[in-house]
Design a protein around this nucleic acid. Sequence first.
DNA 1: CCCTAGGTAAACATAC
DNA 2: CGTATGTTTACCTAGG
Length: 677
Amino acid sequence: MMQESGTEATSNGPANENGGASVEGVPREGRPKSAAPSAEVTAADFLHLQQHQALQMARQILLQQQQQSQPQQLQSQQNTGRKSPKANDKQQSLQVPVSVAMMTPQVITPQQMQQILQQQVLSPQQLQVLLQQQQALMLQQLQQQLQEFYKKQQEQLHLQLLQQQQQQQHAGSKQSKEQQVSAQQLAFQQQLLQVQQVQQQHLLNLQRQGLLSIQPGQTGLPLHSLTQMIPTELQQLWKEVTNAHVKEEHNNSSSNNGHRGLDLSSPAPPKNPLLNQHASTNGQYMSHKRESTLEEPSPHSHPLYGHGVCKWPGCEAVFDDFQSFLHLNNEHALDDRSTAQCRVQMQVVQQLELQLAKDKERLQAMMTHLHVKSTEPKATPQPLNLVSNVTLSKSAPEASPPLSLPQTPTTPTAPLTPLSQTHSVITATNLHSMGPMRRRYSEKYNMPISPISQNKEFYMNTDVRPPFTYASLIRQAILESPEKQLTLNEIYNWFTRMFAYFRRNAATWKNAVRHNLSLHKCFVRVENVKGAVWTVDEIEFQKRRPQKISSPALVKNIQTSLGYGPTLSAAFQFQASMAENNIPLYTTASIGSPTLNSLANAIREEMNGAMDHGNSNGSDSSPGRSPLPAHHISVKEEPLDPEDHDGPLSLVTTANHSPDFDHHRDYDDEQGHDDML
DNA sequence: CCCTAGGTAAACATAC
DNA sequence: CGTATGTTTACCTAGG
């Protein structure tokens, strides 16, 4: 026990260049058994925070009004306010709770979200696309509300200013125009802050929904409450769902749980019938589509229809024309599965929103730190939807429909399989006690399918566990280094640098890393001048992993369970075969980052290991004979591999960024300059 | 049902 | 002495 905290504290040391673990605030949810309490706190805590937040908002409004009615005070404050972010700081002091609230959900649900994410087997790009879509929708709605709000506030402001003027006149007013102007500015600032808060509030609400929706017990009713603040489209969806299937829902809830008075806030409700059901029906899962009834802005464009493909999660049906696509809609029943899918989708979105919020915080902190006085009111620019953001500020009576976000046709999102595991494990407590992620193969073999280049970005920024084994990752880290050797600490750094996931729970994964290094023969420790470094024995590495995914059955499984089309499996097999031959399949895809190579390798290895054993390319796969000495002791001089030269390495160099590679080399030395907040 | 791989936790040793 | 680094053992889960 002691050890744990001890190690953790220290372990943060190396990784702390990131500022990471510590800054993240709540690094230790990973606690083994003692974690239970944290889970309990969550829901209740969250509510508290919300209340707190509401209070804060109210308080600020009051305060603002007070200020406005007191010109002098106003002025002083305004002075500071105008010159530097200080005013903001002041305001921030008020806002703190808000931001805290924003952060907290991350603290609360990250694990859950993560689990969900992991279980969903959604490809990162999909998630990103989803996020964009959902954000667009959300913001759309937000805009409207904000506009209204803003309008009101402006009126109010106007009135207040008038009053103020009167007061000033009474006061004899030397505080001429200047003051008035400044007063106005301050007021304006405050308004903006309010707007911002409102926005945050909305985000929070959304998050909360997601949170709640996760909780297995909410049966039936929550649906209604959900409709309250979900983005329009979802709202519509839920409406449909609830309308069209009220009966079902009722039956459902009654049969499963009877009907409960859903207290949204109830922390630990029983199981979610939907999820359960979903799980049970998982096997026969056929993607279902919702709506056609859905209001559609333009007749020939639908968010769920793109590039001739149905984008409903798990459904990749191809439709030549939009007409037939609508046809399909009829086939998709609004049943439990659909709703469950929606829910899952919401979780995904939520997770992404959390991430977004987090990054916003970070950005804000950075800006504050740099004393960047953003002209924009909001210190939290939203990268994803600048458009909607802009419109939100004022004018624009009619918010624009930012629905036209770049959407890729990728939508093989299929929570099905994963969900089956989810159903009973979904509670916060369970998630924890269960320990983080177990299912490896399923995800592992699912993930590689998506383009890595994007995944890399994804894993670097999203707190999702990478679908690779520690061994693969370690190997990758080592091979990626110029010398093909790394110290333990460098390996650590690589992990934290490449995966957001490994910026938390350092004690845990570091232990795992060490464990793997020691355990697997493929990792060879070499005494060096300045210490010890770790290298990879490729032969040994190839030896291990007897399991084969090559079995057609498995491949088939994957594709069916995921709802992937035949194309996919083809691609999969293609990749696999590529891997066998050490062909740099990611060359073209490389987006200009050397690290990409690493992931590519990691994946290739996964594939490799899986496929190897059956392949004819006996050179390396045959465990028995090894053309090369199985163990090499000297490291530096050891080129270690034919593979690295014509394989991945050449990839890197030939692919457009030899410079990057060098840059990369820097990474190893400077370690973790990157990192998280 | 058994076996294996992988993940996690933890005890322990050793070097700095 | 505390920490970092390694090694080893035990237990658990998923999946073949």
